[in-house]
């Protein structure tokens, strides 16, 4: 299964479908860190929020990489469950990589107000991963073969991201608010409800998406 997930990632990189969402993510990082002094948690929290739409797009592009015939060949070889697991493993690796990248760019370029302490590093990576996984869950629900073509996924994906803000259920806004504090010790308690909410969302969205992938093939 690891080999299958690795193949899906290699295929995604070779397809160049990653370029658009990657540039979108990078643009967010550049813009949001362009106004010093960039307090570590506060700014990183805003960038974590940016990861939600960016990773929704990127994960959708990842799941959309394989052509239907190619996908069917892999399902025949691996079986539908193992193929779904390989796709999910690939999504996890993508989110982990993007979370790390989003943290490393300002760190390497010295854009933070001060060098992040260990606790801050952990919180930032956790928040990045949280928003990235929420984006991955959304992408899984609107991906091929659940929807064929791009019109419905675009409408539903953007609609969900935008409407969640006035509805007060956007994980991006909640995560950014939770990290907008000077004391790292106060963050976990504010981040806990959001973590629970996203965990519940993923617990529902991932099995549902995997079942729909199987049925709609």
């Amino acid at each position: 299964m690891t080999a299958s997930a690795r193949y899906l990632l290699v295929e995604h990189l070779a397809s160049r479908r990653w370029i658009g969402p990657f540039l979108f993510l990078l643009a967010g990082i550049v813009v949001l860190y362009s106004q010093p002094p960039n307090p570590v948690l506060s700014t990183a929290g805003t960038v974590s929020a940016w990861m939600l739409p960016a990773m929704s797009w990127w994960c959708f592009a990842f799941l959309d990489t394989s052509e239907p015939g190619e996908r069917q060949v892999m399902i025949a070889v691996l079986g539908p469950r193992r193929f779904a697991a390989a796709r999910l493993l690939g999504l996890g690796a993508l989110v982990a990589g993007a979370s790390l990248f989003t943290f490393l760019v300002p760190l390497v370029l010295g854009l933070f107000e001060h060098t992040p302490r260990a606790g801050e590093v952990g919180l930032v990576l956790f928040a990045n991963g949280l928003c990235g996984l929420a984006g991955a869950g959304l992408a899984a629900l609107i991906s091929e073969p659940i929807f064929r073509g791009r019109a419905w996924p675009l409408l539903l994906g953007v609609g969900a991201l935008v409407l969640s803000i006035p509805a007060g259920v956007s994980p991006a806004i909640a995560t950014a608010r939770a990290l907008d504090r000077k004391d790292p010790g106060a963050v976990p308690s504010h981040l806990a409800p959001e973590t629970l909410g996203i965990a519940l969302f993923l617990a529902l969205a991932i099995p549902l998406a995997a079942e729909l992938w199987r049925r709609r093939e």
Partner: peptide, 16 residues
């Protein structure tokens, strides 16, 4: 029972 499958018309992975 592993299956080797060739679909009717498969598009290739780009550039690989």
């Amino acid at each position: 029972c592993r299956v080797g499958f060739v679909p009717e018309a498969g598009k290739a992975p780009r550039s690989m």
